[in-house]
Structures are given as structure tokens and as C-alpha cells.
Design a binder for these strands. Sequence first.
DNA 1: TCCTCGTGCTACGGATTCCGTAGCGTTCGT
DNA 2: ACGAACGCTACGGAATCCGTAGCACGAGGA
Lengths: 98, 98
Amino acid sequence: MEILELFGRRWALRVLWELRAGALPFRGLQERCDAVSPTVLNDRLRELRAAGVVELQESGGYVLTPDGHALGGLLLPLSAWAERWARRVRTRRARSAR
Amino acid sequence: MEILELFGRRWALRVLWELRAGALPFRGLQERCDAVSPTVLNDRLRELRAAGVVELQESGGYVLTPDGHALGGLLLPLSAWAERWARRVRTRRARSAR
DNA sequence: TCCTCGTGCTACGGATTCCGTAGCGTTCGT
DNA sequence: ACGAACGCTACGGAATCCGTAGCACGAGGA
């Protein structure tokens, strides 16, 4: 799981997540990622391109490669888990508040 | 996917990955994580405990909560992907080396 | 009693990463 | 010629991470 080296960096997973739905230009991607600074976004994009999960199309805009798409699909169950988790965290916080 | 805020931190996913197999004490966990500094490890553990995916048992040693275990299971397909990915990266590097 | 060992964890200074703002170079449409 | 959108870079300050050293506590043995 050396890949965790890459994913354990800020915005890496988020970029994959945002690109699932389709291509996005640099600034569009930046907006989706809570206005992350272009410096870091470009760092992550270079790393993800080097890893072969993201590519820059000639017509402009970033897209997932087939590999990247397969990976993006694996994030879906994680998303489902995250929803249940968020609900539990809310109720837990509500419980501890009273 | 606010959870990506937590996972997009160094060693967070790695800690989950290492705890899948069972409980580990602080220093044992540290060794498994490439001798990560105790400062950061403790930071991650506090965050993961606050998120309710990891807990410290009274008898000592860190362990995944039921939530955390469910999450850890989702990392398995990701691990399978990572293996295929690592193989591809190797062949790609071998190709570009000649 | 004193020592040792293992437990979780903290202090501190330096290295690395991240961020916010500003702006460059190019292309494309009008 | 000009505006807009494209990808991206420069730079200084803030936040994060790291490596080393060591503290506090409890269990066990001599």
C-alpha cells in the first residue's frame, strides 16, 4: 500500500472525487476543492498524472484515466460509509451536548 | 465527503490499514508506519479517536471500533487496485527506461 | 526496595508542506 | 485589438510534519 503515500496528501483524494463526474478545467477543479491554492493543486495534479490516474486532455481540462476511473469507483462505498458516519457523529455530538 | 479532510492527512489511512489485523500498542503502530514520529502519530490517533473509528483499550493498545472495522474493509478493494497499479507503474517505468 | 521493562505520550527545534495573493504566457472568439 | 478562459508560476508567511530526547505510570523480578 505504497499508494497511501500519495493519497495521504492533502486534496489528492478530493481531486479524484471531484473528477469522477467528468472533466474539469484547472480553475473549475480549484473551485470544487474549496478554493485550494493553485500551487498545491498543481502539485497534486502532477503527482496524480505521474501515477497515471489523471491526465490533461489536449482540448483542455483534467480527466480520470481508465485506471483513475476504476479507483474512483472504489470511493463510492467509502462515500456511503462517510454518510452513515457523519450521521453518527452528529447524533453523538448532540448526545454529549445535553 | 468531509471525511476526506481527515484522511487527507499523513498516516491517517495508514494507521487504519495497520490496525485492520488487530490491536497494536503505540510503539508497535509506530514501527509499522515506517517509524513515524510519535508527535504526528499521536495527533492522528487523537483525531481518529474523536472520529470514532479507533479507540484505546483499557488493557492497552489501539484497536478499530466497529465503525473503523467497516471502514477498514473498504480499503481491501483499494488494496487490490493498488497492486495492479504498482505492477503497471513498474512496467511503464521499464518501458520508458529503454 | 530498587531496578527494569513496557505502556502512552509530550517538548522542542528544524525541515517540509501548504496556503493566499498576484500575475505570466498562450489561445480562442469577437 | 481585445477580453476571456486556459494552465500554471512566484513568493512570503502560516501550518504541518519530523527526529530526538525524555517524562509519568504501572507491572514484574531480584
